[in-house]
């Protein structure tokens, strides 16, 4: 029946694929601490992230251990909300992968590129499986409105509307329950959710690219809205954009977690044993993770530079690390002082 639609040697129109119609990519990243007492070994990381037979886990060692799983696909046929409240029917697959940084931080990320000029009717499923990570709207939609609508959705997702967060949460839960992990994370910490959108802007567009807006909502919800040069859309896996978003989400998580630790350490500072007990894992498990922009493509590095100027991620990081080190010195001093007075007493 469907052979009429796609005859055996039917052309796909490559011109349509590269035409400068605006397109948008959306996704969500969940970032949290791996449920493991020590830094996860390269070997265990490889096994944990081996999500798809026949696909490699990509590992790198400089400037920090980093591993990336292959993408697994999920089929969806649902609505996406635009900024003006319209529901746009989309069909296709979203991709999900996991990354581990420093053997410590787990990120799961689900994403898709939305092509806003899909056919009027749903096509054969083979059409979508041939384009993993792509959603097509049924009927035309406006890329800007799609991006804005997705970014605006920071609370619960309405039933029937695309829920990328749930997809990456499922992978996160599955990995965190893996027998490869010992189940004893060194500190208590929270997960953050980072929703992001990337609007690919053509040369003729007046807007300056790349551009990024980072919004912190409550404790754990963030959004990143990106304007990206159109050329970067071409990379098959949106690699550069995903890398940038994961990097931002990762460092935001480290910062968030560190400030939560500081709050906690301050609250128990009267009790030296407890305070030191809280300080140690903070120092040995969090402080080495700060490597902003480590894997970000040169074309997008400007985004990080911007965030360094305002609000100054690294500035806040340095201040926090300084505070922690001071606390440790203080407690050590007090401890030595205690020993000293014991000795004079004895």
């Amino acid at each position: 029946m469907r052979a009429q639609e796609t005859p055996a040697y039917s052309p796909t129109d490559p011109a349509r694929d590269t035409a400068a119609t605006a397109s948008v990519a959306v996704g969500e990243i969940r970032t949290g601490l791996l449920r493991h007492g020590a830094s996860l070994t390269t070997d265990a990381t490889e096994r944990l992230l081996d999500l798809l037979p026949g696909e490699p886990v990509l590992q790198s060692r400089r400037p920090i251990d980093h591993a990336l799983s292959p993408d697994v696909a999920n089929g969806v046929d649902c609505n996406v909300l635009t900024s003006n409240g319209a529901r746009v029917h989309t069909v296709g697959t979203v991709l999900t992968h996991a990354a581990i940084t420093g053997g410590r931080v787990l990120q799961t990320s689900t994403y898709a590129r939305i092509d806003p000029a899909g056919s009027r009717h749903r096509r054969s499923w083979a059409h979508y499986t041939a384009r993993p990570g792509r959603l097509e709207t049924l009927g035309r939609a406006d890329a800007d409105e799609l991006a804005a609508g997705f970014a605006a959705l920071t609370g619960a997702v309405a039933p029937g509307c695309l829920d990328v967060g749930a997809v990456c949460e499922r992978l996160a839960r599955r990995l965190q329950s893996s027998p490869l992990l010992d189940g004893c994370p060194p500190i208590k910490s929270q997960w953050t959710r980072t929703r992001w959108t990337a609007l690919f802007v053509s040369k003729h567009d007046e807007r300056a690219v790349p551009r990024a807006d980072f919004v912190l909502y409550d404790e754990n919800v963030r959004t990143i809205s990106l304007l990206i040069p159109y050329a970067l859309r071409e990379s098959y896996r949106l690699g550069a954009v995903l890398e940038l978003c994961r990097d931002l989400a990762l460092h935001d998580w480290v910062l968030t977690t560190l400030s939560q630790r500081i709050k906690r350490i301050s609250s128990v500072s009267g009790d030296r044993t407890r305070a030191v007990g809280e300080l140690y894992p903070t120092i040995s498990h969090l402080l080495h993770l700060w490597m902003p922009g480590a894997r970000v493509e040169p074309q997008l590095a400007r985004v990080w530079d911007g965030f360094e100027r305002q609000p100054g991620f690294t500035r806040q990081w340095n201040t926090s690390v300084g505070w922690i080190r001071d606390q440790l010195s203080l407690h050590t001093l007090q401890l030595l002082g205690g020993l000293e007075s014991n000795r004079t007493a004895g």
Partner: peptide
């Protein structure tokens, strides 16, 4: 491993 089952309408990823 690469099988992705065809979604029925309303499949939104939440389940």
């Amino acid at each position: 491993g690469r099988l992705v089952s065809v979604p029925v309408e309303g499949t939104d990823g939440s389940r």
